[in-house]
């Protein structure tokens, strides 16, 4: 400790030379490029939006800011109510057809850079609610950065998703199982494919409903 103090004093006086100087600089000065620095700063100081829709809202944003699953450890303690001041929106809960335009408007009001976490099964893919009233997955109308499965996901799962999002922001995203099992490139778009139209009895029921209601 005393030795370090003396070396710092020498540096300030201009007394360190040559190899000593190089060693000193290596130890004390951090060299990085600006993107990495920016990614590190952004990921560790995110302002989530206080946005809870349904059951997942009790687990996050309420439960993860409480003492046991502290979100403040990751720098995201300051939950902002206004979308203009927030940069992470956690879609915690089912997005119904009445709420979808409101969520989209909130997302549009957020300033760049912004990230979206689809928390729970309902916002990732409508969960168990495959019916007329729930949008089948929030990524039908807004881009989603990370999906956290569960119904509701444990707060630890949300925090794991949060740390994965942090790595993504820092620039080294974690492809997960696709990398482990050598399956990169097997992603596919399921929607819009040949089997995403209603079939059989459902098709007739929809036609009949349209006739009855005159839509």
């Amino acid at each position: 400790m005393r030795e370090r103090q003396l070396r710092s004093r020498d540096l300030l006086r201009g007394d360190l030379e040559g190899e000593e100087l190089e060693r000193y600089v290596e130890e004390k000065v951090v060299m990085t490029n600006f993107e990495k620095l920016l990614g590190w700063a952004r990921s560790n100081s995110m302002f989530p939006l206080t946005f809870g829709l349904a059951c997942c809202a009790i687990e996050a944003p309420i439960s993860i800011v409480t003492a046991r699953y502290d979100l403040a450890r990751f720098g995201a303690e300051a939950l902002r109510a206004s979308p203009r001041q927030a940069d992470l929106i956690i879609l915690s809960g089912r997005v119904s057809i009445k709420m979808a335009p409101v969520v989209r408007r909130l997302y549009d009001q957020m300033l760049e850079p912004k990230w979206v976490m689809a928390m729970g099964a309902c916002s990732s893919s409508a969960g168990m609610f495959s019916n007329y009233a729930v949008v089948q997955g929030a990524d039908k109308f807004m881009p989603v950065d990370i999906y956290v499965p569960g119904c509701p996901p444990r707060p630890e799962a949300v925090l794991y998703g949060f740390t994965k999002l942090q790595r993504k922001i820092q620039g080294n995203p974690d492809p997960g199982w696709r990398q482990r099992y050598n399956a990169l490139g097997t992603e596919e778009w399921a929607r819009g494919g040949p089997r995403s139209e209603p079939r059989g009895g459902d098709l007739e029921a929809y036609e009949r409903a349209r006739e009855l209601t005159g839509a």
Binding site: A209, L212, A215
Partner: peptide, 16 residues
């Protein structure tokens, strides 16, 4: 539409 009527389909999307 009147969703809760018995002849209104449940809706949703089939799993692909």
């Amino acid at each position: 539409g009147w969703p809760q009527r018995r002849d209104f389909p449940v809706g949703g999307e089939p799993v692909t």
